[in-house]
């Protein structure tokens, strides 16, 4: 991400305080050993490795962090967290950055991954359970990647792995309510309940 221009660090930053509060991790404990990056299976595809993300947060370089594809590519396999000598749950830090992106509505560097998660949650909201067929259809239409996923769908269908009819669950209405509470108030559980109290 070197631009040639010098960056101005802001070590006491909103970014760090948000991440620390959200993830309960001590960002300054990181001493940049790189064990996370070297163990990360997806590091090669990231524009900033996990170690670099930690450094950017330490230095308060928010724009660089929020624009990176790292936070979207992380699949929370927790390999980094389980090896970190500073005992930082780095996957949890990534999670808090995605929550920050959702809270602020900042655009995702990996649009499709963001879209996938939103679509997935939508099917749960709708049926109370995940429904792969609806998910695949909705995602495929929205991502406009129709042919890319056709082959897999066909195979699944012939193997009887694709259930066309969405599930009918009694708990679905409960799920809808929870979604509307959580969805309207952002990521905090207690906030979701507080709003409820105000109704």
């Amino acid at each position: 991400m070197a631009t040639g221009a010098a960056v101005t660090p802001s070590p006491v930053s909103d970014l760090r305080s948000f991440v620390e509060k959200q993830s309960h991790q001590h960002i300054l404990d990181c001493y940049q050993c790189g064990k996370c990056s070297a163990g990360c299976p997806i590091d090669y595809a990231m524009d900033l490795g996990p170690r670099q993300i930690m450094r950017y947060i330490q230095m308060g370089l928010k724009k660089e962090v929020m624009q990176s594809n790292t936070i979207w590519l992380c699949v929370a396999c927790e390999t980094c967290s389980s090896r970190c000598p500073a005992k930082i749950d780095i996957a949890k830090v990534m999670e808090s950055l995605r929550i920050l992106a959702a809270t602020e509505g900042s655009p995702a560097a990996e649009k499709n991954i963001d879209l996938f998660h939103r679509t997935f949650l939508n099917t749960i909201r709708q049926y109370g359970r995940a429904h792969e067929f609806s998910l695949a259809v909705a995602y495929t239409l929205k991502s406009r990647n129709i042919f890319g996923n056709l082959g897999a769908a066909q195979t699944m269908f012939t193997k009887g792995k694709l259930v066309i009819m969405p599930p009918k669950v009694g708990g679905a209405s409960w799920v809808k309510t929870v979604f509307s509470k959580a969805g309207s108030t952002g990521p905090d559980v207690s906030a979701a309940v507080k709003t409820e109290g105000r109704h």
Binding site: R129, V169, G170, G171, P187, V189, A192
Partner: peptide, 18 residues
């Protein structure tokens, strides 16, 4: 009886409450 989805990776990826 009547179980619902755990939210899988998508929920904790974006919404802690869910």
């Amino acid at each position: 009886k009547d179980w619902t989805c755990c939210g899988a990776s998508s929920a904790h990826t974006t919404n802690e409450a869910l």
